[in-house]
């Protein structure tokens, strides 16, 4: 009964459920670490992607990656590959896979999985230093649509 009610509310809230969002646990990985399918079915917005990549509390990609295409963003990090030209070097599916969990492509990668909820060693709830009370307390760093937005921006980085 509760489920039916909840479903009704979801349908009422979002209109036709054109496509269910793919949960972090259900990402359809290819063997090479790429993900061909969109996580949401909604095309990513590159402008949103740019904001996500430069906002500390969101993707904060520039903490580690330099992007010359964003000359207005100060203090870009230099511990990870520069992202200019990423759209030429990688396919959309490869970029999506790297953003979701780069370790599927590069096993030793320093890069955190942006749409990953485990398994982790001693995960805390965000930066509270507190352990989760239930598994759902560990949220992915980015939402499914934010991943799509970031991928859409990366695809614009062409040299």
């Amino acid at each position: 009964m509760h489920r039916i009610l909840a479903l009704t509310i979801v349908v009422a809230g979002f209109g036709l459920p054109a496509m269910a969002e793919i949960a972090p646990e259900d990402v359809p990985w290819s063997e090479d670490g790429s993900v061909a399918e969109s996580l949401t079915g909604t095309p990513g917005n590159p402008d949103e992607g740019k904001v996500i990549m430069t906002t500390n509390a969101l993707g904060n990609c520039v903490a580690c990656h330099a992007i010359e295409a964003m000359p207005d963003v100060p203090f870009q990090g230099d511990i990870a590959p520069q992202l200019d030209g990423a759209g030429d070097r990688w396919t959309e599916a490869q970029l999506r896979g790297i953003v979701i969990d780069a370790k599927r492509t590069f096993p030793e990668s320093f890069m955190p999985g942006m749409y990953k909820v485990g398994p982790f060693i001693r995960p805390g709830v965000a930066y509270t230093a507190k352990p989760p009370e239930k598994p759902e307390d560990i949220k992915p760093i980015l939402s499914a649509q934010q991943v799509e937005d970031v991928v859409a921006y990366l695809m614009t980085l062409s040299e």
């Binding site: 990090g77 230099d78 511990i79 955190p112 995960p123 560990i138």
Partner: peptide, 25 residues
């Protein structure tokens, strides 16, 4: 060398592999 937390980072990731480099500022 153990990678802790949701960001899966070890001490070595920053202080061995990347000393001299920058994370943001």
């Amino acid at each position: 060398y153990t990678r802790y937390g949701q960001l899966e980072m070890s001490c070595a990731n920053c202080h061995e592999d990347n000393y001299g480099n920058y994370i943001r500022s």
